[in-house]
Amino acid sequence: MTNCPLCKSEARHFQWFREMEYLQCDGCSALFLHPRHLPSPQEEQERYKEHNNDVEDPGYQKFVAPIVDSVLQDWPPQTSGLDFGAGTGPVISKLLGDQGYNLRLYDPFFWKDPAPLEDRYDFIVCCEVVEHFHNPEKEFRLLSGLLKPGGRLYCMTEAWDPSVDFQRWHYKNDPTHVFFYHPHTFRWIRDNLGFSGLELQGRLAVLRK
């Protein structure tokens, strides 16, 4: 038996794709890659280096706009922010920096200094990050603990629900995308990992401390 890496409920076989098995959690409805297929840290880093994340690319800037616009609406520039999983091109920090914000950066591969994880923040942005979590329970507990009371966590990811044709779904084709969130999954996170509120806005999930 394999348990969900988020809520620890029992998971059952969901589908195979390219000789890799995906499971579905009976508790929080998440889909995830079977642990035996998880990429190594070296494989992850090589894949991330292939991303063409040019902070000046208008298309990339448009892609991250839902997070940027939400932060601009919710917080003034003097508040504290963290770009968690900033990657090779921290475009959100660049765009918010242009508006007077100052975000700190953390990424386990590209911004490895752990000092930002010792502070607390009004808001945290995670753009195309949470689907990479091998241990989402641990990561969301960390993120919750990094927020000040009343703070917000902005997660942009492509959620899954039964209307999605999994075999044709492009999002699971990236080998580093290993955990997929159903709306129920985010509700479980809200209710169990130190959050008090949740807003689901398309690809954007906002968890309130």
Rank of each mutant, 00 (worst) to 15 (best):
M1L: 04
M1Q: 02
T2V: 09
C4A: 04
P5I: 11
L6N: 10
R12F: 15
Q15H: 12
F17G: 00
M20R: 14
C28A: 03
S29N: 05
F32V: 13
L33I: 06
S40Y: 00
P41R: 12
Q42D: 15
E43H: 08
E44R: 13
K49F: 10
H51N: 09
E56N: 13
V64W: 11
A65L: 03
V68R: 03
Q78K: 11
Q78A: 13
S80N: 04
S80G: 03
D83C: 05
G85N: 08
I92K: 03
Q99R: 15
Q99E: 14
Q99S: 14
Y101F: 15
N102Q: 15
L103W: 08
R104S: 15
Y106N: 04
D107S: 12
P108Q: 12
P108K: 13
K112G: 04
P114W: 12
A115H: 09
D119N: 11
D119I: 04
V125N: 08
C127W: 11
E128Q: 09
H134N: 10
P136V: 06
E139A: 15
F140P: 09
L143D: 04
P149W: 01
G150S: 06
G150Y: 06
G151T: 05
R152D: 00
P162Y: 02
S163V: 06
R168V: 04
W169L: 11
Y171M: 03
K172P: 02
N173L: 13
P175L: 13
T176V: 13
H177Y: 08
V178G: 10
H182Q: 03
H182L: 05
F186E: 07
R187F: 02
I189M: 11
D191Q: 14
G194D: 08
L198N: 10
E199I: 07
L200A: 01
R203E: 09
L207E: 05
R208K: 11
R208P: 00
